[in-house]
Design a protein around this nucleic acid. Structure first.
Lengths: 150, 150
DNA sequence: TCCGACATGAGACTAAGTATCAGTTAGAAT
DNA sequence: ATTCTAACTGATACTTAGTCTCATGTCGGA
């Protein structure tokens, strides 16, 4: 079963209709590069209204079909969702995004729980760096403002 | 030396002027609760123009006087910066923010570096949960959409 | 084939942030 | 103290991202 069929099935199971506009958005997503903005989808899904694209993206997020990637500047990108819990490794230079599932925060969560009395429910981790191809083609990037990075 | 004086000194050292508007913004920041939005500052720093508040906040970020807290919905909050590398623990219910410095990602960074050929330069980690007082006063929160949390 | 709930597009609206520009001012030089 | 100018300012127009509303369209069950 193709990705498209899987997603359509998931829509149906949740009682959502599979309409022309939704298909066009899905086609746009699946044809898009690994990560994209809502605006990219808007341009690719020709004829589909602005509001509908936003609505559909939100729906697909709820269905875990796509997930959000937070860029360092606060802008939102999306990508077809990997299964389950994962994080993103974002290239600061070209914007490429990799998934990774290594995520050992259990010790951290335990320590925070006991020291702060918070009930920890989730976390968001994005790692930023420069991918190999950017490092070889642009050895010296123009330095941006220093992030919260370690 | 007070916080205010320290910040003013830092401004001067970098060749920035200490103007009335900047003072008013700083007063607003220092009087604000531990975390706040640009809009909060706008309202407190009466008479200071919109653009100036945004400009000043950006400047203060560059000077590491304030730091950004990314809320789960993508909105930006700020807080007076703690020294050095740290992360935030955000209460989903009341929005309260705690700093923490425990941050052992070196193993993760090493693993990612070797498996992806990225040069890791930084990361962003925000932890979300519910603080003790929210848990006791509102035992059952209305459930929001499920986050990327583990 | 009728029907109602779901979905849609257009466009008005909001919020957050940026750009422009003429006027003001801090603070160094005189 | 006065002058000078780059830095700064507020007003306002603009941009961008996203939401709301509402009249219209359509899917698919009865």
């Amino acid at each position: 079963m193709s990705d498209l069929e899987l997603i359509i099935q998931r829509l149906g199971l949740r009682g959502h209709r599979v309409t022309g506009s939704r298909r066009r958005v899905l086609d746009a997503l699946l044809a898009a590069p690994a990560h994209f903005t809502v605006d990219d989808v808007l341009q690719r899904a020709d004829g589909v209204g602005r509001a509908t694209v936003f609505r559909t993206m939100k729906l697909l997020q709820d269905l875990n079909v796509v997930c959000r990637v937070m860029m360092e500047d606060g802008s939102r990108h999306y990508r077809i969702s990997a299964r389950g819990h994962h994080h993103h490794l974002v290239c600061r230079s070209c914007g490429r995004v990799e998934d990774f599932a290594i995520c050992d925060v259990s010790a951290l969560v335990q320590e925070l729980s006991s020291s702060t009395e918070y009930e920890i429910e989730g976390h968001w981790l994005e790692v930023y760096g420069r991918c190999q191809s950017c490092r070889t083609t642009q050895p010296l990037a123009t330095a941006g403002s220093e992030s919260n990075g370690s």
